[in-house]
Nucleic acid binder design. Structure first.
Lengths: 116, 116
DNA sequence: ACAACTGGTTTATATAACAAACCATAATCC
DNA sequence: GGATTATGGTTTGTTATATAAACCAGTTGT
């Protein structure tokens, strides 16, 4: 596909900054606690909670809500294999698109679609 | 700043896929016609129009609406110097963040904030 | 004259992001 | 032992956003 079109059509579930941060962070951990993830990303709890829900619905992460010693609530998150593949793929595509544009972009100084 | 925080706080005016595509395309042209930009990015007219308005309000692009031979309406767009700097900076930051995470991310497999 | 096309803009809607308020339990203080 | 604060989040509400669909003025074709 043309690089600019590909760029314009990037998956926004993954591309959104907060979620890209979450997913990339999770790619580097086997398991992350909610509060750890909050500190890493700097997001508010409410915000993080919403983004996690969205990512879980998309099948990119798995959320486990449990209690420590049957008392203290604790939410742990891990990335799914699909999630991991999706983030890696996203970063690779970003890089590839940017590279493609850098190479061919120099001689694309046309003002209209027909090249008139 | 910590790379995950920086990632989560990226400027969304620039980062949004359609606008990143528009800005990156404009960086490679001295001037672009509306329809040319539409073909490059694959966006609908209405959608493109809205994104352009937003980018203009942000001072990243300049829009010139005029008539060809006093008859045919034509909208041409060029990127401002601030806009050009902002997109280049955005791509550079994305790359730098990704690189930083790749380097230090390997040993960040901690489950909680305190490193307990 | 009427239909269809150009080159867009405006409007409407559905979704999104985010902050603020909330809630249950637990530990702390007096 | 009652109130107070802290922990670990979730729910709710507001505002902004992205997108499609409808529209519009002018022009060209028949």
């Amino acid at each position: 596909m043309l690089p600019y079109k590909e760029l314009a059509r990037l998956d926004k579930l993954i591309h959104e900054p907060a979620r890209l941060s979450i997913l990339t962070a999770l790619s580097a951990c086997t398991l992350a606690e909610f509060l750890f993830l909050q500190e890493l990303t700097g997001l508010t709890k409410g915000n993080l909670s919403c983004h996690l829900t969205k990512l879980e619905k998309g099948g990119l992460i798995a959320i486990d809500k449990h209690f420590v010693r049957k008392k203290i609530p604790q939410t742990t998150i891990r990335i799914t294999s699909e999630g991991k593949a999706a983030v890696e793929n996203h970063w690779n595509r970003l890089e590839a698109i940017h590279e493609a544009i850098r190479k061919q972009g120099a001689n694309s100084d046309r003002r209209n679609a027909s090249g008139e």
